[in-house]
Amino acid sequence: MKVVEIFKSLQGEGPDQGIVTTFIRLGGCNLHCRWCDTSYSHTAGSEMGASEILEKVREFGAPHVCVTGGEPLLSVNDLLPLLKSLYDEGFIIEIETNGTINPALCREYATICMDIKCPSSGEKSDLSLLKYLGFDDSVKFVVADINDCEYARGVIENKEFIAKIFISPVWGCDYGIIADYVIEHRLPVKFQVQLHKVIGVK
Rank of each mutant, 00 (worst) to 15 (best):
I6L: 03
I6C: 03
F7W: 05
K8D: 13
S9G: 07
S9E: 10
L10A: 07
Q11I: 10
G12L: 04
E13H: 05
G14P: 02
G14M: 03
T21G: 07
T21W: 12
T21H: 09
F23S: 06
I24E: 03
R25K: 15
G28K: 02
N30L: 10
D37L: 14
D37S: 14
H42N: 11
A44D: 15
A44I: 10
G45D: 11
G45Q: 12
G45S: 12
S46Y: 12
E47G: 12
G49W: 08
E52K: 08
I53G: 01
L54Y: 08
L54T: 04
L54Q: 03
L54K: 08
E55S: 09
R58A: 05
G61W: 02
A62G: 10
A62E: 14
H64M: 10
H64G: 05
C66K: 07
V67G: 05
G69C: 08
E71H: 05
P72C: 09
L73A: 13
L73S: 12
L74A: 14
L74M: 15
V76A: 13
V76F: 13
V76Q: 12
N77I: 11
D78C: 13
D78H: 14
L80D: 07
L83D: 05
K84N: 05
S85R: 11
L86Q: 06
G90Q: 02
I95Q: 07
I95L: 13
E96N: 04
E96V: 00
I101V: 08
N102A: 07
N102M: 04
L105G: 02
C106Y: 02
C106V: 11
Y109L: 06
A110H: 05
A110D: 04
I112T: 15
M114A: 11
M114Y: 01
D115T: 01
I116T: 04
S120D: 04
G122V: 00
G122Y: 01
E123L: 02
E123K: 02
S125L: 00
D126G: 01
L127Q: 09
L130R: 01
K131D: 09
G134L: 06
G134H: 10
F135Y: 13
D136G: 15
D136L: 13
S138L: 04
V139L: 07
V142H: 01
V143K: 01
D145K: 00
D148C: 03
E150N: 10
A152I: 00
I156S: 00
I156P: 01
E157S: 14
E157F: 13
F161Q: 02
A163E: 06
K164C: 04
I165L: 06
F166I: 01
I167A: 12
I167W: 07
G172A: 06
G172K: 06
G176R: 15
I177V: 15
I178S: 03
I178M: 02
A179W: 09
D180W: 02
D180Y: 03
I183L: 15
H185T: 12
H185N: 15
V189N: 14
V189S: 15
V189H: 11
V189E: 15
V189Y: 03
Q192K: 11
Q194F: 13
Q194S: 11
Q194P: 12
L195F: 13
H196L: 10
K197R: 14
V198R: 14
I199T: 14
V201S: 10
V201H: 11
